[in-house]
Amino acid sequence: MGFGTTKTLAKAANRAAKTYRKTGGVVGPLDDVRRDRLLGLMPVEDVWGVGRKLSAQMNVMGIITARDLQQFDHKTLRRSFNVNVEKTALELAGVSCFRFEESVEPKQTIASTRSFGVRVTTLEGLREAVATYVSRACVKLRSEGQLASCLQVFIQTSRFDDHPYSRTAICGLEVPSADTRDFVAAALAGLQRIYVPGYRYAKAGIVLSQFCSPHSYQSDLFAPTPRRNADALMGVIDQVNARYGRGSLRLALEPPVAQWAMKRDYLSASFTTDFNQLKSVKCQ
């Protein structure tokens, strides 16, 4: 966990907390001395918003560390790059230039993809994985208060296999929906079209798109009648899972324990989102 007086400094502190074990997982350079020490140790390519391409140009100009970027002439940065780079340098100096967004823009797509912990070789295993990913994506879709009318499902082997394979199917819904059952049916139909036996699949996923508000789309006179009480059912499922844990209520196709689940032997602690893993601080 990292915090600072600006968004860029907070990002830098967060990266340091993850990189340097001696920090204990928490970094907050609130005074100038600690801030400059941190920036002096951080390569410029690790600064939020810089990346490899910009850092290669900056290295030629003698900007090697985040501290170098902070001290560089701001007008020259603006002329050589753009105004965002100038603002980044100002933020590293403690001048707030990037405001925090009070309201989050609605998502345009929602994806749920995972690499398998073990290779999946059967259609049944892929069906379980795809149904699970669809359920997770639909929870996010409903939390956004949106409907979707398009779904993409993909499967792929490792690119390092001797004969790699990867395909995607695009599935459209006749009526925009947020019902998990509609999307699972569409995803499984798409999966059936792209599945080829004989491969050891390493990853699968789905992407929801073409969103609209429940009150802003034109209904189709000839579309099939929606399921009765679908919104109420999905709402109950979401409430139960939010209270008792994800997967407490699920579709029959979703396994309680997935054999293909992604390995998480080195998963980071969730002390910012889980009270049971909250860090304790001793005050003297």
Score class of each variant (00 low, 15 high):
140 K>H: 10
180 T>A: 07
182 D>H: 13
191 L>H: 05
174 E>D: 14
126 L>Q: 05
163 H>K: 15
153 V>W: 04
144 E>F: 05
190 G>Q: 05
159 R>D: 11
155 I>F: 01
126 L>M: 10
133 Y>V: 07
155 I>R: 06
164 P>C: 03
142 R>K: 12
152 Q>N: 15
143 S>I: 00
190 G>D: 06
182 D>C: 12
182 D>P: 10
175 V>K: 14
170 I>H: 04
177 S>N: 11
148 A>F: 01
166 S>G: 15
131 A>D: 08
166 S>E: 11
127 R>S: 12
130 V>A: 09
156 Q>H: 13
177 S>P: 12
180 T>V: 07
178 A>N: 15
125 G>D: 09
163 H>T: 15
181 R>S: 14
134 V>D: 00
165 Y>S: 06
151 L>K: 07
161 D>F: 12
155 I>K: 06
183 F>D: 08
190 G>W: 03
173 L>V: 05
144 E>N: 02
149 S>F: 05
155 I>A: 05
159 R>Q: 12
162 D>H: 14
178 A>D: 15
164 P>Q: 07
151 L>E: 04
181 R>F: 13
179 D>N: 15
155 I>V: 13
142 R>E: 07
129 A>H: 05
183 F>H: 09
157 T>R: 05
155 I>N: 00
155 I>G: 02
144 E>K: 02
157 T>G: 03
140 K>N: 05
169 A>L: 01
133 Y>P: 08
149 S>I: 04
169 A>K: 00
144 E>M: 02
186 A>Q: 10
158 S>N: 11
152 Q>K: 14
146 Q>I: 05
159 R>A: 13
175 V>Q: 15
166 S>T: 13
134 V>R: 02
125 G>T: 10
152 Q>D: 12
155 I>D: 02
185 A>R: 05
187 A>R: 02
191 L>E: 02
168 T>K: 00
160 F>K: 11
185 A>T: 03
145 G>L: 11
140 K>F: 01
127 R>F: 00
155 I>Y: 01
